[in-house]
Amino acid sequence: MKKITSALVALGLGVALSASVQATSNDEAVIERIKAVGSVCIEGDDSCGGAAAAPVAAGGTRSAEEVYTAKCAGCHATGAAGAPKYGTSDWADRGSKGMETLLANAINGINAMPPRGLCADCSDEELQGAIQHMIDSVQ
């Protein structure tokens, strides 16, 4: 009888241990599924291990072509939502409005174009360069 009792106790401990391991495994799986996808590092926050980069590289402003390609081409290459298409007479006509007007339109938005287009991190000078790049595409 003692052997049967010992076997049952061992079996009970084994089941309890197995259930505990399974619960831990389930807890770990739940934690893995609900963990944050990413984290936000703000420039100057040392707790990120220096992962936060400055908005503009130390080399200065981006070139007009870089800004156009990265930020403006999404609409201006295809004419999406009525955007004047790069390399077409659309820009010859726009150039007659003058840079001051075109820059103000880019900064404030016009028609379907939101303020600053898709370049919230562009300086006014970078926007002006991208506009000039688009005007120059028809000359």
Rank of each mutant, 00 (worst) to 15 (best):
G109F: 01
Q132A: 12
A29S: 12
K35M: 11
A7W: 03
E43W: 03
S6I: 11
E100P: 00
H76W: 00
A52H: 01
A83V: 04
A106E: 00
D124I: 06
I110L: 12
P114K: 02
A120C: 02
A83G: 12
A7N: 02
S63L: 03
A54R: 08
I110R: 11
V9C: 12
M99Y: 00
G74W: 01
G87E: 04
I34Y: 07
S89T: 15
V15Y: 03
I42Y: 05
I34G: 07
L8F: 12
I31W: 03
K35F: 01
G117K: 04
S25K: 04
K3L: 11
K85T: 13
C119M: 03
S89H: 04
G49Y: 03
S89K: 14
I31N: 09
D121M: 10
E65P: 02
P55Q: 09
N108R: 04
C48K: 06
G12A: 15
P114T: 04
Y86A: 07
G59S: 15
A92R: 12
V21T: 09
G12V: 06
V56T: 12
C122S: 10
S39H: 04
S137T: 03
G79A: 10
C72S: 13
H133E: 05
M99R: 11
E66W: 05
L102M: 15
A19V: 09
C48D: 04
R33W: 05
G87T: 08
R94C: 07
S123Q: 07
D93I: 12
A83L: 06
A106G: 05
P84M: 10
R33E: 15
D27C: 06
I31L: 13
R94M: 14
L103C: 06
P115Y: 00
D124M: 05
Q128I: 03
S47C: 02
M1V: 10
